[in-house]
């Protein structure tokens, strides 16, 4: 049975997961320089060892309020599309897509990495709370908790097709 690994994290009290193949690193580089005239879920930019990373306020992006940075906050850095290329070929997973530039997700707390059989990823429930359904690709039930899986390409994509915010 095929399995999939997810890096889990919390936004508020809710648990989320992201396919580990997307993740380049998780760090606490949170000296974010705010950017103006961009969509409100764009938190700003950070310098990650000489590379500029655009940081998303993931909570805001999913449809919630802006989140403030706490002592457990982390920056979950995604691989760029180029970095995903070989993995995409190897895994044959065509939806492993991000963007040409580095993006990080601001999350409230990082959890463990879980590996589950693919058939344990189930369809979204009818009610996804504050979260816009299109940004989720499924849920995993573990013990008593529910882990919502982030649809990464979707979270990233919209902004490039109908280019992002800025009140002009």
């Amino acid at each position: 049975m095929a399995t999939q690994s997810f890096s889990t994290f919390k936004l508020g009290e809710r648990q989320f997961g992201i396919d580990i193949l997307f993740v380049r690193e998780i760090n606490r580089h949170l000296e974010i320089t705010p950017m103006q005239h961009v969509s409100d879920f764009i938190r700003g930019i950070v310098n990650l060892r000489g590379q500029i990373v655009t940081v998303f306020d993931l909570h805001r992006r999913l449809g919630g309020e802006k989140h403030s940075i706490n002592q457990n906050s982390c920056n979950l850095i995604l691989k760029t599309d180029q970095e995903l290329n070989p993995i995409r070929e190897r895994e044959g997973q065509n939806d492993l897509r991000t963007t040409s530039e580095s993006v990080g997700f601001l999350v409230d707390q990082i959890g463990s990495v879980i590996t589950v059989p693919s058939d344990e990823i189930i369809e979204l429930p009818a009610d996804t709370g504050f979260i816009d359904r299109k940004y989720l690709s499924g849920v995993i039930k573990q013990d008593s908790s529910t882990i919502s899986i982030i649809n990464v390409p979707r979270v990233l994509m919209d902004e490039q097709t109908n280019s992002p915010g800025g009140e002009g």
């Binding site: 950017m35 103006q36 005239h37 961009v38 969509s39 764009i42 930019i45 500029i52 655009t54 963007t99 040409s100 530039e101 902004e159 490039q160 280019s163 992002p164 915010g165 800025g166 002009g168």
Partner: peptide
């Protein structure tokens, strides 16, 4: 370095 894709509309940068 180029501006972020997400800041394309922010012509002030």
């Amino acid at each position: 370095k180029p501006t972020s894709l997400y800041a394309k509309k922010a012509t002030c940068f």
